[in-house]
Design a protein around this nucleic acid. Structure first.
Lengths: 235, 235
DNA sequence: CGAGCGTTTGAACAGCGTCAAAACAAGTGG
DNA sequence: CCACTTGTTTTGACGCTGTTCAAACGCTCG
């Protein structure tokens, strides 16, 4: 099972500039833990004693509704922070999508750093805003009506974010976007992320494939053939 | 047209503790402007020279899609900050829902404050996290399928947030929640916020009324009769 | 090879969007 | 005070899209 390159250094590749900055400026003591596929990192309602940073792999944050349905609220890629709460409790649970390495930092240490070091406060503020902006974009996406719009938007988002990992040679050659997406998450994860059902997600994928908008070598590997069509599906 | 009490002081009533803190700790120079109903405060793509704080009234942030549809991304109530961007440009536009008073602060001043005063950085980080958390909740809501779930969630959100304004006597009497909601926004605003159509929103309101879950003295005034049923509609 | 999971596909149904029109509220001028 | 206007909200009828239920398919790993 290929998920992400596992031994890639935490702030190795050409990641978002802000995330590099975050890692550099926060210089926080912490320790790294490994989690297996679908393993829970923390649960909804637990004490938020720690703050987490993805070193390798992908994490999803979820919430369960009263009737048992699950909402996937976000995916977290290497370099990103998650589990930061202002109240004392986690409002979501977090699980490893595939094999993961996660760096843990005590919440108290973070707060202290914020109070003592302006640079840390600044970096954290910047990180929050980035999260906020990503979330806003996702919200716009969720408000869209048709399944094609949602799935199209999701693929674009993933293309945008995921390239940042396997692109080292790409960066050297000067090519900016590489339309290959390795989806570490299942159809169910995607469906719960987009507010659709697995069936609809699956149908939309094959629909895109038949329309030559994407290629599907395997169900978890997407080749974007017609980026514009994906954006248009988003109308 | 009653919208909000207009001469209420910015950080007057028993608002969210964090917002009071924000106003107190940020002590930023700024000037107040007035905006009329539906007037644009800033537009998508404009330079984000300023940061804005609602003094009185309600503001909505929106984005227009290519096909002309509009997404309402959030409502901002008195005390709240909006228009804070990490890039140099506004990614949304903002309009006054009703008559508004808005305090403007130069972005540069804010950044300087963050760098000089740890308290300011801390307060801003906290504010970002609150926004983030509100947005996460809204995302959970948008992922919900049925119209009843979305409208129910919206009413609960508004009940939760809006009480904080007209509650002075309420606070004295010790009562915590007052299930009366004055909606300053139109059905269209609500629909675009929830990813539904005005017709569906309207139908859901009357459906709730017939089921004795809410009362509708006027279309913009909601009395919550059965809070639990609203939460259940959210399943 | 078979078991188990994830994915795809099919058919029938329900809910929301669309189009259209009526009811209502608020403001304007006779 | 009423007739008229404009904008918002409500209601109705119909079609489409996504959900639901069900079954088949295709991996991967024992």
């Amino acid at each position: 099972m290929r998920t992400q390159d596992f031994d890639a250094p935490a702030s190795g590749g050409p990641q978002a500039a802000g995330q590099v900055e975050l890692a550099e400026r926060l210089i926080l003591p912490g320790f790294v833990m490994r989690f297996g596929r679908n393993e829970e990192i923390f649960g909804e309602g637990e004490e938020a004693d720690f703050v987490y940073r993805v070193v390798a792999g992908v994490v999803r944050t979820t919430r369960f509704l009263a009737d048992g349905r699950r909402r996937v609220c976000g995916f977290h890629l290497p370099g990103e922070l998650f589990g930061v709460e202002s109240g004392g409790l986690h409002r979501f649970s977090a699980e490893a999508v595939g094999e993961c390495q996660i760096a843990l930092v005590r919440q108290a240490v973070l707060v202290e750093a914020v109070e003592r070091r302006p640079a840390a406060a600044h970096a954290l503020w910047a990180a929050s805003r980035r999260d906020l902006e990503r979330l806003q974009e996702h919200m716009v996406l969720l408000g869209r009506r048709s399944a094609a719009e949602r799935v199209g938007g999701f693929l674009l988002e993933m293309a945008e974010r995921a390239v940042q990992i396997p692109t080292e040679l790409d960066a050297a050659s000067g090519r900016v976007r590489m339309p290959e997406i390795d989806l570490p998450m299942s159809r169910l994860d995607i469906a719960d992320y987009l507010g659709l059902t697995i069936e609809t997600v699956s149908r939309t994928f094959t629909q895109f494939e038949r329309a030559r908008i994407i290629g599907l070598p395997t169900s978890r590997h997407v080749v974007v053939r017609d980026r514009q069509a994906l954006a248009d599906a988003q109308a």
